[in-house]
Nucleic acid binder design. Structure first.
Lengths: 255, 255
DNA sequence: CCAGCCTCTTCCGCTCAGTGGAAGCTTGTG
DNA sequence: CACAAGCTTCCACTGAGCGGAAGAGGCTGG
């Protein structure tokens, strides 16, 4: 017989989203079969959905048949708040900081238990640091992450400090020590890391807050050597962070 | 009776996409009713789809009930080729150009009959020019657009020069004159505009091509006064454009 | 305090859009 | 030329999706 044994309880919408979910930072080009596999759907089903997505412009298909995310989805993504508001406001300030320091500059918000890198500026010469826009790194091992965590709700802190991942030999994983460091971050108004996320990378970061609001983002800088004067960059960051905060609408929050 | 008069021939997938399509540059925050109206769907239907999208993280709902594009969609959009490859490669060069000129720098690709602005750098002090990342402007009225058009297939040129929109009093709309100008752009290797898109904005642009490939993007600069030495910026742009081209994978194409 | 209006949420039985196994097709490989 | 792997098309069964309607909540003006 033809017919089928339709898996129950799965909406079409969720299938569409599963197709989109098949793509991620390290899988941005997929074949139909890969999409089917990664989204957990029969080939025929994936085929139908993918075709429709392509027709709409959400996916594009290269000559070799490989699918990638299309412009239409890029357009839509561009409208996300994290992207639009924050990036637009912060961008000139990132440039300022970059121009005066010549170092890699990062802008991040908290996304659950990760620091989500919304924007960054890297010198062409600078060794490529891990982060790129859209990357998510652990909160406890990055300077921007520590800033965000230091101003996060208690349950987030608790969750983040429960069995923190050891990324490099220098990563701090003792909850007690991290707790003390977060208090220090709040007191001092800036956070630091020394090769805790990437060997050969040292960084500082400061919080960004809109007028009359809490900390919504963090601005950080990464250098490739244990410069003793790293702290001297803090005032530069603070001026920029204050500028960004001032230009954000009062009460602005990511999400 | 309950039941209904389901509109036939409309797939669920397309309904989901219609919901996403309800959002655009000037409508990035919508209420449920607005989404329903703009996507042409009954409220109950929109409600269901929106709820599912929100559950997935594609949409977020603010406290006041207004919906916006969520992080999940931002993530996915980030994976688009235009965004990823081109932006990543070009970003440091844009910074170089910006640093030496202090002017607004633009990176654009052709999207149908429009120049799609993939990235830009603006000085905080500079008067805000129209373009922002994600913006689409007519090909015939912008410098980057002219570059892209000058290297576009014949049918695109024909379509673009059929009744070109007059944007400002300075916009060139005579097909003949535009045709001649495109030839000139090809010959000279750069394009210019003088208040053709935005009053008070002059600009130049050059093509970007990967090794052994055609023109895939354009790098431009916008200044706020009719500087006589605008052409002197062309070499700067060319160095950067060459650098970008060289770092693009051979045969790279947007889309 | 209520009427009027708006937007959002929930309900429910009918029905056709969606389903996926299978067959056919294309392309690459040994 | 057989075989495999990936892609496309086909088709009849059926439950997921549909949307009108009613209910809930909120705001405004009389």
């Amino acid at each position: 017989m033809a017919g089928n044994a339709r898996e129950p309880g799965v909406s079409v919408a969720s299938r569409v989203l599963a197709v989109l979910g098949a793509f991620d930072a390290s899988h941005d080009r997929l074949t139909l079969s890969e999409i089917a596999r990664r989204s957990g759907q029969p080939l025929a089903t994936a085929h139908r959905l993918v075709a429709e997505l392509e027709r709409w412009g959400g996916l594009t298909r290269a000559d070799d048949g490989v699918y990638g995310i299309g412009r239409r989805l890029w357009d839509v993504g561009t409208l996300a708040r994290v992207e639009r508001d924050l990036r637009d406001v912060a961008s000139p300030f990132l440039q300022d900081v970059h121009r005066t320091t010549r170092e890699t500059v990062h802008l991040a918000v908290r996304d659950g238990l990760h620091a989500l890198y919304v924007d960054r500026l890297v010198d062409r010469t600078t060794a490529q640091v891990l982060s790129r826009a859209g990357a998510r790194l652990p909160l406890h091992a990055t300077a921007v992450g520590k800033v965000l965590l230091a101003h996060a709700p208690g349950d987030v802190v608790r969750a983040a400090l429960t069995d923190p991942v050891r990324v490099t030999p220098h990563t701090i994983t003792e909850p007690g020590r991290l707790h003390r460091e977060l208090a220090e971050v709040r007191r001092r108004g800036s956070a630091r890391t020394a090769e805790e996320m990437t060997p050969g990378a040292w960084s500082v970061a400061v919080p960004i807050a809109p007028p009359g609001g809490g900390v919504v983002a963090s601005l950080g800088i990464v250098v490739a050597s244990p410069r003793r004067d790293l702290v001297r960059l803090v005032p530069v960051l603070q001026v920029a962070a204050n500028g960004i905060g001032r230009e954000l609408p009062p009460g602005w929050a990511p999400t």
